[in-house]
Design a protein around this nucleic acid. Structure first.
Lengths: 204, 204
DNA sequence: AAACTATGTTACTTCAAAGTAGAAAAGCCG
DNA sequence: CGGCTTTTCTACTTTGAAGTAACATAGTTT
């Protein structure tokens, strides 16, 4: 496939479509950043616009309204959470730990924090429905990993359902507490966290 | 101490003070209920007033403004969390479990859910400071219990600080998920939850 | 009774922020 | 060029909810 040796300054339709998509993503990233940091209601679209060096009506060119923007952020975050650590191999326990680590990593991103911190009550009924679908998909996934672990003897648990809920909840709390996560410290936090969940506090 | 055989319809100053305090508490309870269920911003004071069969200005007779109401809710919730399970005796582990159970019970109340769900970014700087003080007091308390358990050999943990953070976070997530907690199911949830935290998922 | 205090109401004002109309640039194409 | 589409802007309307002024009512005290 021959590509133009020098990039043409003129854009064909495909390129323009791509550029529009990129701008839309930039809006989303800016929104996710402030939403996750300060919360949906406390952020005005004027602020989002300012952060991007444009004016508010421009945002409306890319999104129907503020809620659509929020929904896109949450959805993206949830999609990332669902896709976390899917490549892992091994017994239930190994795969579960891999997934939890991936999950924790996502939660440290703006989109992940949006997905975790934003209450679905902010969303319209239609959006909420979609969000719930992805959330229960994630829940199902964790539950499956726990069940696999129980089956192969690598995990002890009496109730995969509650366990899955507890695991997700515990990790989500990482996203709640401090608004500005410091990169180096968090690695240890997450490791310790997962270690606690897997091994508990009982003395050996 | 002789008490009036029949309640007098006339009130002395003390009684009036009490009545005012009761009404103030009623406002607070109504506010905590809706705040914890739907979130601070999505609740209007007109709604709170309506739930109490009064009008909005009446609320301003009992609270300076909306934020003062929120702060009172959060503070009350945090105070309850701090006081949870303080009476327990035994080794570190026993006392920790007792505290966590109390903590979980508080989180199922409106005030507890307020304390846990409301982001401190909603509050003014002054209120936030006070909130943070109580929160770190709670954190210190859990940390102490963990440390005690480590000292007496009833708990295995490499880092009381992170452990305390994880424990609180995991329990807090109970308050996040479902807006309408069903009483009977939750007991099992909480037990399972605490069991997971104490014993982990490792097979014996 | 008259004055005072506590409690509540009606009927506003104010304000921030969402959303919009319509024009102006900028880029593309016959 | 002159018209077409895409993108962005300026300048506005609208709205929802916080907060307030000023009055009404009733109980309390002198």
């Amino acid at each position: 496939m021959a590509k133009a040796a020098i990039a043409s300054p003129w854009k064909n339709e495909t390129e323009r479509k791509t550029e529009r998509a990129l701008k839309r993503e930039a809006v989303l990233a800016a929104a996710a950043h402030v939403f996750s940091e300060r919360g949906y209601h406390r952020v005005s679209l004027d602020e989002v616009a300012q952060a991007l060096n444009v004016t508010k009506p421009t945002l409306y060119y890319y999104f129907k309204n503020k809620e659509a923007m929020l929904f896109a952020c949450v959805q993206h975050g949830l999609d990332m959470l669902e896709a976390a650590g899917s490549a892992a191999e091994g017994n239930g326990r190994t795969r579960l730990v891999a997934y939890l680590e991936g999950y924790a990593a996502v939660i440290e991103t703006d989109f992940g924090r949006c997905a975790v911190r934003i209450s679905d009550a902010e969303l319209s009924e239609a959006s909420r429905k979609k969000v719930r679908r992805i959330k229960s998909e994630i829940d199902r996934k964790i539950r499956q990993l726990v069940a696999d672990g129980i089956a192969d003897g690598s995990i002890a648990s009496s109730d995969p359902k509650i366990t899955a809920f507890a695991l997700a909840g515990a990790l989500n709390s990482i996203g709640q507490w401090h608004p500005r996560p410091s990169q180096p410290a968090d690695r240890k936090l997450v490791d310790e966290y997962i270690n606690l969940l897997m091994n508990g506090l009982a003395p050996r």
